[in-house]
Amino acid sequence: MSELTPLGEVVGRYGLDARKALGQHFLLDETVCARIARLPGDLEGRHVLEVGPGPGGLTRALLAAPIAHLTAVELDARALVALAEVEAAFPGRLTVLQQDAMTFDGTTLPTPRQVVANLPYNVGTPLLIGWLRQAGAWERMTLMFQEEVALRIVAPPRTEHYGRLAVLAQWVAHCAIGLRLPPGAFRPPPKVHSAVVVVTPHAEQPAPELFRAMERVTAAAFGQRRKMLRGSLKALGSAEALLAACGIAGERRAEELSVSEFDALARVVAERPA
């Protein structure tokens, strides 16, 4: 392996000042990067996708594991030179693509495949929802978010953070916070804490039409979350008939329903004529 620029010097050497427009907060602590790289478990033989590698701290930590190959998707052209240095140090093990992660189809990677990423704050949630739609394609997703977003992913019913994101995520996967990080762990420090969520998809996954039905149900239910369900679900047709079919009282509110109750609602909606 060729000599790498010390991680603490990478930002200065390559002019990688973090840009707010790209949601960038760089993780340069090698010990923390190594801890994140251990969260997915045994990565031997895995094909890993990293989004927004920036200076390449987490990239280096992942390549230190016995992964089969790492594909790093980076939109910021300034980071490409720094990543080229890492690519040269690990010949044949790293592919860097200058591309918008929102348009990259990770299911084109060989299996078994995982995602491990310190996600840009401004696209973390839409990226997650896109991956949840195809959760069966992934063995595991280990993802860094703002802590508030992480709490919204793992929240149980009847809690402050429980909402649409929690239902969608927990419906298709087991979700747990694996690591919390203070602002000082990043350069520049964000104004909020961050957390890594480990998302492990269930063995059985909903068909695409059922996932679309769940998106409709949760959008309606949580779009007017203070309303009773008999009011908020009117956008789906006869709310009374829908709720009766699932044995759910119309005066309940979205945050009171379990994931399994949302599953029942989605299945009824999916079976209705278009």
Rank of each mutant, 00 (worst) to 15 (best):
M1P: 14
E3D: 14
L4C: 12
P6T: 10
E9P: 03
D17Y: 06
H25C: 05
H25V: 03
T31G: 13
T31K: 14
V32H: 09
A37K: 03
G41V: 06
G41D: 04
D42T: 08
H47T: 12
V48S: 01
P53G: 08
A64Q: 14
P66W: 11
I67S: 08
H69W: 13
T71P: 06
A72I: 07
L75V: 15
T103Y: 12
T103N: 14
P110Y: 02
T111C: 11
P112E: 11
N122D: 05
G130I: 10
W131G: 05
L132W: 06
R133A: 15
A155W: 04
R158M: 14
E160L: 09
A166H: 02
A169Y: 04
Q170S: 10
V172Y: 04
H174L: 12
H174Y: 10
R180F: 01
P182H: 12
P183C: 11
A185E: 11
H193T: 12
V199R: 01
H202T: 06
A213K: 05
M214K: 12
M214I: 10
E215T: 09
A221M: 00
G223P: 02
G231K: 14
S232A: 12
K234P: 00
A235N: 00
A245C: 07
G247R: 03
I248L: 12
A249L: 13
E251F: 14
R252T: 10
L265Y: 08
R267S: 10
R267F: 04
V269E: 04
R272T: 13
R272Y: 00
A274H: 13
